[in-house]
């Protein structure tokens, strides 16, 4: 009896994350969808007129969407080459001692609060951009550079796992036919780890798209479509973050509607990443116990553990 009760309680706690995802989805949509229907999805997404609290309120989030797109793409341009390079470095050529430094460095980069990143952008980078390149300083460029660093941990850790999962035989085979170590990495290992690397980039995009406080601090929050990387802009997230505290009525609904758009975009990205890493995840987590025991008895890894394509 006690056993069954405990089993049931554990089952319930395992259900919590799925249930809360459902509840979150429901309440965000419930609060935001009515306004989208009232304004019309087309107008809401395509108009860039946002004056939520006047006599004739207008709700168009096009300039925020474009701001988000610009900043996210900028972060990817900065973060992906650097992140991929660090992932290759620590998976393939870092001496053990250095690898032992890189891992906590990446972990710490992930742990630094986003307000600290935003503050660095605000006090170091923005003045630097203003004096050297012109413009207001609080700009798409500033935000993209800092966000590129903020998404490094997602890109490095997932890409590194994918690279490490490539079977040894690939490496040895390439080296044996006379490829240099770099040719081995670039022509064999990176393509073999492709799906994991792409997934890491998509998750990085999700992170950049969803970041709020740091972006508020660095982007200038100008409600305009940025014409150059040196312009100020505003994003879906920063607009919610700035206006939620005082919004009411239709204005508040419009912020939740913005949240709906953001939520849908993020979920699409997450699902893409999940599909791409799906295989690895399935093998790691769904390996039946009996098979792994069998493999252990025979002293080798189960066939399913050999990932890479």
């Amino acid at each position: 009896m006690k056993e069954r009760l405990i089993g049931f309680l554990l089952f319930l706690s395992a259900l919590v994350s799925l249930a809360s995802l459902a509840v979150i989805t429901f309440f965000i949509f419930e609060a935001g969808l009515p306004l989208i229907f009232k304004v019309g999805l087309g107008t809401f997404l395509e108009s860039s007129a946002w004056s939520p609290s006047g006599k004739n309120p207008q709700f168009g989030i096009a300039s925020m969407i474009l701001g988000s797109v610009w900043v996210t793409l900028g972060a990817i341009v900065v973060g992906v080459p650097l992140g991929l390079a660090v992932a290759i470095f620590s998976a393939e050529l870092a001496p053990p001692r250095l690898a032992a430094i890189i891992r906590p460095v990446i972990q710490l980069l992930a742990g630094i609060p986003s307000v600290i990143y935003g503050f660095i952008g605000l006090t170091i980078l923005a003045p630097l951009v203003r004096t050297t390149l012109g413009g207001p300083g609080l700009s798409v460029l500033t935000a993209a550079l800092i966000l590129g660093i903020m998404i490094l941990p997602s890109i490095v850790s997932i890409s590194e796992d994918a690279l490490r999962a490539v079977p040894r035989a690939y490496r040895e085979g390439a080296l044996a036919v006379g490829a240099t170590p770099w040719q081995t990495i670039w022509r064999v290992l990176v393509p073999a780890a492709r799906s994991g690397i792409v997934a890491s980039i998509i998750l990085g995009m999700g992170r950049a798209l969803g970041e709020t406080m740091a972006v508020i601090m660095m982007l200038g929050n100008a409600l305009q479509v940025p014409r150059s990387p040196l312009d100020s802009a505003t994003t879906l997230t920063s607009n919610i973050g700035l206006e939620l505290a005082y919004a009411s009525g239709a204005h508040r609904e419009a912020l939740f509607a913005t949240g709906v758009v953001l939520f849908v975009l993020i979920m699409v990205l997450n699902m893409l990443a999940n599909v791409l890493t799906g295989r690895v995840v399935l093998w790691r987590t769904r390996l039946p116990v009996s098979r792994s025991i069998f493999a252990r008895l025979r002293g080798r890894q189960p066939a399913g553990d050999r990932s890479g394509s």
Binding site: S17, V23, G210, G241, L262, I266
Partner: peptide, 13 residues
């Protein structure tokens, strides 16, 4: 999915 939900969405919720 919950791990990928941005913090502002948690804030809204």
């Amino acid at each position: 999915s919950l791990a990928g939900v941005p913090s502002i969405i948690f804030g809204l919720f």
